Simulated assay, not measured.
Amino acid sequence: MPETWLLSLSESALASALRQSAIGYPLLSSAHILGLSLLVGSIVTLDLRLLNIVKRGRLSELAPLLSRVAAGGLLLAAVSGLLLFSVQPAHYLGNNAFLLKLVLLSLALINVAIVHSLPAWRLLLAGQPPGLLLKFTAAVSIILWLAIITAGRWIAFV
């Protein structure tokens, strides 16, 4: 059953067009990197501010803005990533670095969901300083997102 799904995905008109286009796949790859840059750049900036390594800006103002930028980056990275995946799904699913990236991405998104569900997050948005739990999740977040970037780069070499 999975092979049928993968075959139909890789034989879709869009995947075929991407494989045959001299500029489509490179542009899509660039869009994916742009999405990742927006996502990881805004998250790491927010995490560094939560950890008080970056001291400028009020968290109650930065957190909503950087969260929206991260969400936009995530959307762009997810859509472009799915389209890139469609070009060679069997190849990617056989790539351990890609699989590791997916696991790490799942953990990072769970971390985001946990943070946004915490009462401490709502207090932060109301102007309270971050507590130990938010600082811990910020440290975990930085580690996970940097590991995702690393695993993503390894895809080409594994």
Rank of each mutant, 00 (worst) to 15 (best):
S21R: 11
L100I: 14
A22N: 05
F136I: 15
L59R: 09
A90H: 09
G152K: 08
L59Q: 06
L28R: 03
L102K: 07
S29T: 14
I148F: 03
S67Y: 00
A22W: 06
L93D: 07
F157H: 15
L83A: 13
L125H: 02
K101S: 10
G152S: 06
G127L: 03
S42W: 02
L75R: 01
G73N: 07
L133N: 03
L65T: 12
S86H: 06
P64N: 02
L133S: 07
L144M: 07
L46M: 14
L74V: 14
V115E: 12
S80F: 08
V112L: 14
G94I: 07
R58A: 13
L125G: 06
L28Q: 03
Q20S: 13
S42N: 07
A17V: 05
R122I: 00
P64V: 07
E11F: 00
V140I: 15
L104S: 10
E11K: 04
F85H: 10
K101P: 08
V79R: 03
V69H: 05
G35S: 10
Y25K: 07
L6N: 09
L75P: 00
R49A: 11
I143K: 04
S8T: 15
L14W: 12
P2A: 03
Q20C: 02
P130A: 08
L59T: 12
N111D: 15
S60D: 14
R56Y: 07
I110V: 15
S16A: 06
W145G: 10
K55F: 05
S106C: 13
L74R: 05
Q20Y: 07
I53T: 12
I43P: 06
P129M: 09
V87G: 00
K55I: 13
I148R: 01
A126M: 01
I148T: 08
L51S: 04
L107K: 04
R58I: 00
L82C: 05
S8N: 12
I33W: 07
M1K: 09
S16N: 13
L100K: 04
L107T: 02
A13W: 03
